[in-house]
């Protein structure tokens, strides 16, 4: 009996070892998709995030524009700019593929083939002289949880499709973990004193897609026929 239990334990340990690389605390790899369409990001309490007066003014402008069917005047996504963080995870309810290595995590989105690459390091690199659509992120493992610090996010992005704004003060502390083998949970702790009166938290849940699911090639400019970007003065062409 004892021998059988030991064998079973060893076998289970071997299976677990094979399930993910030795250096990773959890195997997050796979194709994932948002479990519930999330056009508007709410707090974990199900409320509108605590916007300041300045933040609410921008948000209301965006909401009014949306009501009129206008995105192009305010939403960079309408011009095929990257949706940013964390909006890209919810865009079009499309899947993304997650890859991980010892030194790096990549979220490969279907949306316009975007990639969010995160180095696994203990602190930020003081490198960029400009902000980025996905911000500047570093990640570390804490047990089975991947912790990500994000800063330096382009202020012309929005946190969701509904036009939740942010300033260049925004920082996001994220965690990524498996709730079960087929459920990936991302938590987001937003701090932005200019736009939000207090820190707030939101959670996104993703479901693993069936084996063999492919993340397809999407071209935003083709999809939206945004040919205005492709106009070249042919007098410059030799």
């Amino acid at each position: 009996m004892m021998r059988s239990m030991i064998k079973t334990t060893v076998a289970c340990a071997a299976l677990l070892a094979a399930a993910h690389p030795a250096w990773a605390e959890a195997d997050l790899e796979g194709v994932w998709k948002i479990a519930t369409p999330t056009p508007a990001l709410l707090t974990d309490q199900g409320t509108l995030p605590p916007l300041t007066k300045a933040g609410l003014e921008i948000y209301n402008q965006n909401q009014a524009a949306i009501a009129k069917g206008d995105r192009r005047s305010w939403d960079p996504v309408a011009k095929c700019k990257p949706p940013g963080e964390p909006r890209t995870y919810t865009e079009m309810n499309w899947p993304f593929e997650l890859f991980q290595s010892k030194d790096r995590i990549d979220f490969l989105f279907q949306w316009n083939r975007l990639d969010r690459a995160i180095p696994i390091m203990d602190k930020q690199i003081d490198d960029p002289d400009e902000p980025f659509y996905f911000g500047q992120s570093v990640a570390q493992w804490d047990g089975n949880v991947l912790k990500v610090e994000v800063e330096n996010i382009k202020p012309n992005t929005f946190l969701d499709d509904a036009g939740l704004p942010h300033s260049d003060d925004l920082t996001i502390d994220e965690t990524w973990r498996l709730r079960d083998p087929d459920t990936l949970v991302g938590t987001f702790h937003f701090v932005d004193p200019t736009i939000y009166s207090s820190p707030w938290d939101a959670t996104l849940v993703f479901k693993r897609q069936p084996a063999g699911t492919r993340v397809l090639e999407d071209s935003c400019t083709d999809r939206t026929n945004s040919n205005d970007y492709a106009t070249i003065d042919n007098s410059l062409v030799k």
């Binding site: 390091m121 203990d122 602190k123 930020q124 690199i125 003081d126 490198d127 002289d129 400009e130 902000p131 500047q136 570093v138 610090e149 800063e151 330096n152 382009k154 202020p155 260049d168 003060d169 920082t171 502390d173 701090v191």
Partner: peptide
Amino acid sequence: RTTIDTSKNREARGGPGGPPA
């Protein structure tokens, strides 16, 4: 061109100080 002072963000977060990686 917008340049963000990320050191301010790091201090607010209470994250690791010292020189960047």
